[in-house]
Simulated assay, not measured.
Amino acid sequence: MTTFVITIPGTFTTDKAAGAHAALERGLSSRHTRASESEGLELLTVNEDRTFSVRIEVDAEDRYEAELDAVEFLSTSLKDAGVPEGEAPLGPPAVTGIDSDA
């Protein structure tokens, strides 16, 4: 099993959605492990222009599975934070870190 750090960009399309970032950070906190904390990784970065990026740690067999899991987790976290699907469109996920036991 490999641990991937997946970065997903997005844009909040409304001020209300942009204001939900504290609730979103709480929802993402389960993926903020000791490894990412020790590396100083921020889970969520929100810019003044309402663009954002999320870094999520995922244990998966391969990159494809890791990206799918990260996008699904982020989509659920956005919904749980009260952000409707259309108010935070996501960009393509990218692998920005890999830690393999092998």
Score class of each variant (00 low, 15 high):
Leu78Ser: 02
Ile56Gly: 00
Pro89Gly: 03
Gly97Val: 03
Tyr64Met: 05
Arg63Leu: 03
Asn47Trp: 13
Glu42Arg: 14
Leu74Tyr: 02
Thr51Met: 05
Ala81Ser: 09
Asn47Ser: 13
Glu67Ser: 05
Ala22Val: 12
Asp62Leu: 01
Ser36Cys: 10
Glu87Cys: 02
Ser77Lys: 07
Glu42Val: 03
Phe52Asp: 01
Phe73Asn: 10
Met1Gly: 08
Tyr64Pro: 01
Ala66Phe: 06
Ser100His: 06
Arg31Gly: 03
Ala66His: 10
Gly40Val: 07
Phe52Arg: 06
Val46Arg: 15
Leu28Val: 04
Gly40Met: 09
Asp59Glu: 12
Leu24Gly: 01
Asn47Cys: 07
Leu44Thr: 08
Arg63Gly: 03
Phe4Leu: 08
Gly19Trp: 09
Phe73His: 14
Arg31Phe: 02
Thr2Arg: 12
Arg63Cys: 06
Ala35Tyr: 15
Ser53Asn: 08
Thr2Ser: 06
Thr14Glu: 00
Pro84Thr: 02
Ala22Asp: 14
Pro9Glu: 05
Val54Tyr: 00
Glu37Phe: 08
Val5Asn: 09
Glu57His: 02
Gly27Thr: 05
Pro89Tyr: 01
Val58Pro: 00
Ser38Gln: 15
Val54Ala: 13
Gly82Val: 08
Glu85Ser: 09
Arg63Glu: 13
Gly91Thr: 05
Asp101Glu: 14
Val58Lys: 04
Thr13Trp: 01
Val46Glu: 10
Phe4Thr: 11
Thr11Lys: 15
Pro84Phe: 04
Thr33Met: 03
Ala20Val: 06
Phe73Trp: 10
Glu61Thr: 04
Ala35Ser: 14
Ala22His: 12
Asp99Cys: 06
Pro9His: 15
Thr33Ala: 11
Leu41Ile: 10
Met1Phe: 05
Ala70Ser: 13
His32Arg: 11
Pro92Arg: 11
Gly91Ile: 09
Thr3His: 11
Gly19Glu: 12
Glu48Val: 03
Arg55Met: 07
Ala22Trp: 10
Val46Phe: 07
Arg50Trp: 00
Val95Cys: 05
Pro89Lys: 11
Asp59Leu: 09
Gly82Leu: 10
Glu87His: 11
Asp15Arg: 13
Glu48Leu: 10
Pro84His: 07
Ser53Pro: 02
Met1Tyr: 10
Val71Leu: 01
Thr33Trp: 06
Arg50Pro: 01
Thr45Asp: 14
Thr11Cys: 00
Pro84Asp: 08
His32Gln: 11
Arg26Gly: 04
Pro9Ser: 12
Glu42Pro: 02
Ile56Val: 13
Ser36Lys: 14
Thr76Arg: 14
Asp59His: 10
Asn47Ile: 01
Met1Lys: 11
Pro84Val: 06
Phe4Arg: 12
Phe73Ala: 11
Ile56Leu: 13
Ala66Glu: 08
